[in-house]
Amino acid sequence: MKILLYFENEKLIKTSGIGRAMKHQMEALESQGIDYTTDPDSEDYDILHVNTYMINSSRLIAKAKKEGKKVVVHAHSTEEDFRDSFILSNQLSPIFKKIIMNVYSEGDYILTPTPYSKKLLEGYGLTQPIEDISNGIDIRRFDYDVEKIKAFRKYFSLKDEDKVVIGVGLYFDRKGILDFVEVARQLPEYKFIWFGYTPLYTIPKHIRDVVNEDHPTNVLFPGYVKGPIIEGAFSGSNAFFFPSKEETEGIVVLEALASRQNVIVRDIPVFDPWLEDKVNCYKGTSNEEFVDLIRGVVENTLPSTKEAGRKTAEQRSIEEIGKRLKAIYEKVLAQ
């Protein structure tokens, strides 16, 4: 069998979770020897696997169905995780839901990253088979590497005694960026670094102000950073803090787990049941709890969850996701 993997506007999404999902899908298929193409003009394929929801995606689906091809739609987004993001996102979210539903409803089979997002889609009234499958993680990329840690600490001119908490995400209220800054304000003895970038003209003014200047001196916003520096940050910091309010999975959480880092997240439904409080992570519900958890993790007064977290990530390795995708494709072709 041969798969056409389609991601519309690759340049636009490359720094987002969907962008990393694209890379992971390619690697997953390669790990299982599954033939694939990313050329939308290709005629030589058996299954179209669509990951985006813009006009060209809809046209490609229509063309594939006309030719009798099978269509798998990957539901990376929901109305819920579109809200509290860009300017006017809350007002536009019902329209966004209609757009994604138009695409999702055309699939013969729907994939989505977590049991939580599957439940949301079922609530939308979709009738096709829906299966949850993680976006996966390149485990080896996040193995402990002294040189990467040195690169990270040198990049930020960190002293040996500096204790660092990192977060990763777009500049969205939904990602918990305001709580990240407020928690940092209450822990001035630690450095807080938020990796990620969103064009400032696309986000609300109160978020823009926080990123530009309305944050304490112990908070850094270096923007989008890739390669050894961010990989060194995951394993070379003292804690990973991700106070996101809504996700369909959260690839950055998988990256932190794979890095054997202590992870602190907000207690939201998407992390159930694969993240377990006090086992492979710590969960909080308020800034007061986050402050206590971060202090406990950084000062080693709370038990480490690093090894259990790594095992959770290993269950979602690229190879494991490749096996799942292969089984799903075979199922779709047999329909």
Rank of each mutant, 00 (worst) to 15 (best):
G123K: 10
L48H: 02
I95H: 05
T114D: 01
D209H: 08
F240R: 02
T112P: 04
Y282E: 05
D46P: 03
F180P: 01
T52Y: 00
A21R: 02
I110M: 04
D35T: 14
E79S: 07
I230L: 11
I207L: 11
N135M: 07
V181L: 05
A62N: 10
L12C: 04
R208H: 09
N51W: 13
E182F: 11
I294M: 10
F142T: 05
K326I: 09
E246H: 09
M26C: 13
N287L: 12
F242T: 01
I230A: 01
V279K: 14
M26S: 03
L200T: 06
P273C: 06
G136H: 00
E247Y: 03
N300Y: 08
D209N: 14
R316C: 06
I207G: 01
T305W: 14
E288R: 15
G232N: 09
N90W: 02
R208W: 06
E246F: 05
D173S: 04
K66Y: 13
V146R: 13
P222M: 14
M101P: 02
G250V: 02
A313K: 00
T301S: 14
F240M: 00
Y116H: 11
L126Q: 01
V164P: 01
P115L: 12
E320N: 14
D41G: 06
V146K: 15
K159E: 15
P94G: 05
F290A: 05
D173N: 09
Y190V: 09
R174M: 04
K118V: 07
H74Q: 10
F195I: 08
K326F: 06
N90A: 06
R310S: 14
R316H: 13
A28C: 06
G227Q: 11
E231M: 08
N238W: 15
